[in-house]
Amino acid sequence: MAEAFEPKIVGLLCTWCAYTGADLAGTSRIKYPPNVRPIRIMCSGRVDPQFVLDAFAHGADGVLVGG
């Protein structure tokens, strides 16, 4: 119980926009929290609400959709 709560966040990121942005953040060495697990999708329009519920059902604490 002593362990602090670290949220698990699923990031559904568009390959052209947010994913590339995340990539750039990495190459620019910008520091940000490691809690988001990025999942690259071809377009944020591909995100089905079922993905979001699935993420929650599998124990995600939050879902970030980046388009």
Partner: peptide
């Protein structure tokens, strides 16, 4: 717990800020 954000490929700063804030 659900957030939708429009980010472009050049907005690395904003991506980092969004992730930090959401976390």
């Amino acid at each position: 717990r659900l957030r939708l954000e429009w980010l472009s490929a050049s907005e690395a700063q904003r991506y980092a800020a969004t992730v930090a804030e959401f976390t």
